[in-house]
């Protein structure tokens, strides 16, 4: 069994009634990997996750887990855990009983069950809350219960649906660390779904960017962040200035415009992050449409013949007033080359 086929999705097509949500998806995931499915809502990431869990039967294609074809295995026999976005705790059961739920169904002996539940609660720091009802816990605590509830089942794969989206900023950082720790300690294979690139970049070993039911790019966070394969990915990870290339020139709303250097051969587009745009130098001219102070940097929105350009410069530089006309450059060597533009 090759390394990336611990969990493999082969030519997976998923649909709700007749609406295709995911088309011919191929994806291989390593044992112990932490993978993010990243994309805007409606891209098929949640649908893909639900099919791995067995909550949605594929229209066609195969899902293999640890060497076995599980495509038709019912959800309750898959050894796949899922932490729901809303946590989905059982409101009528105590924290202890929530975590024990699956073990009781498995008829785990009382002594071992208590030990496993206690260990599970301990690993998420909730030992003291065993007797509480879910409604008496904060959102972050509820999520940790949901995590423990899935973890005590020792699933082969743990899926997490938008694990951080319901938490406030401070808790989010805490939970992120917590997830990483639990994953490293247990060595469990985790897949989480998110629409937030920051989350994906910070947490995942590997990111799968999805769009309209197809995979746009698979790569490490560094790859995705620095070398987006398409305009869509570039836009999604914060390249605000994205251009298609045509005959070695930038394609803009106002026609083709020369590059300030020569583009590498065989690429479909170029993308610049705001901080790679150089102000007060270069061949292009623009007018300041908007400016905002962001602490260490200052952001500008320029009205230019290339269309709107976003630039971000060190706040130490002298500022430009609204309406000022200035030169700028889009250095080709600082741009991310895009293999695909569409």
């Amino acid at each position: 069994m090759s390394d990336t086929s611990f969990l493999s999705l082969e030519q997976l097509t998923l649909a709700y009634d007749d609406n295709i949500a995911v088309r011919n998806l191929d994806l291989g995931i390593k044992r112990g990997e932490l993978v993010a499915l990243l994309g805007p809502s409606g891209c098929g990431k949640t649908t893909t996750m639900r099919s791995i869990a067995g909550l949605l039967t594929p229209k066609s294609g195969v899902i293999r887990l640890d060497g076995a074809d599980i495509t038709r295995v019912p959800a309750n026999k898959r050894a796949v855990g899922l932490v729901f976005q809303s946590y989905a705790l059982f409101p009528h059961l105590s924290v202890f009983e929530n975590v024990a739920f699956g073990l009781r169904l498995k008829k785990v002996a009382k002594h071992e069950l208590e030990k496993r539940v206690e260990n599970g609660l301990k690993s998420v720091g909730l030992s003291k809350f065993a007797a509480r009802k879910p409604a008496e816990l904060s959102g972050g605590q509820q999520q940790r219960v949901a995590l423990a509830r899935s973890m005590v089942m020792e699933p082969k794969v743990l899926l997490l649906d938008e694990p951080l989206s319901n938490l406030d900023a401070r808790l989010r950082l805490e939970m992120r660390t917590e997830l990483q720790r639990v994953q490293k300690e247990s060595g469990i294979t985790m897949i989480f779904v998110t629409h937030d690139q920051v989350e994906a970049l910070a947490l995942a070993d590997r990111i799968v960017v999805m769009r309209d039911g197809l995979i746009e790019q698979i790569g490490t966070p560094e790859d995705i962040y620095n070398k987006p394969a398409s305009a869509f990915v570039a836009d999604f990870v914060g390249f605000e200035n994205v251009f298609a290339l045509e005959a070695g020139q930038l394609k803009t709303p106002h026609g083709l415009i020369n590059l300030s250097g020569s583009a590498p051969a065989g690429i479909a587009g170029l993308a610049w992050r705001p901080n790679t745009v150089k102000l007060d130098q270069g061949p292009y001219q623009g007018t300041v449409l908007g400016t905002s102070f962001a602490g260490r940097t200052r952001e500008y929105l320029l009205d230019t013949p290339l269309g709107p350009i976003k630039a971000e410069v060190d706040a130490g530089f002298p500022g430009h007033e609204l309406g000022t006309s200035l030169n700028f450059n889009l250095p080709v060597e600082d741009a991310a080359p895009l293999a695909r533009f569409a």
């Binding site: 869990a53 898959r78 899922l82 989905a88 705790l89 739920f101 699956g102 169904l105 089942m153």
Partner: peptide, 10 residues
């Protein structure tokens, strides 16, 4: 989803 959670727990 609480039903789905129960199903995934067996």
């Amino acid at each position: 989803d609480i039903e789905e959670a129960a199903v995934l727990l067996g």
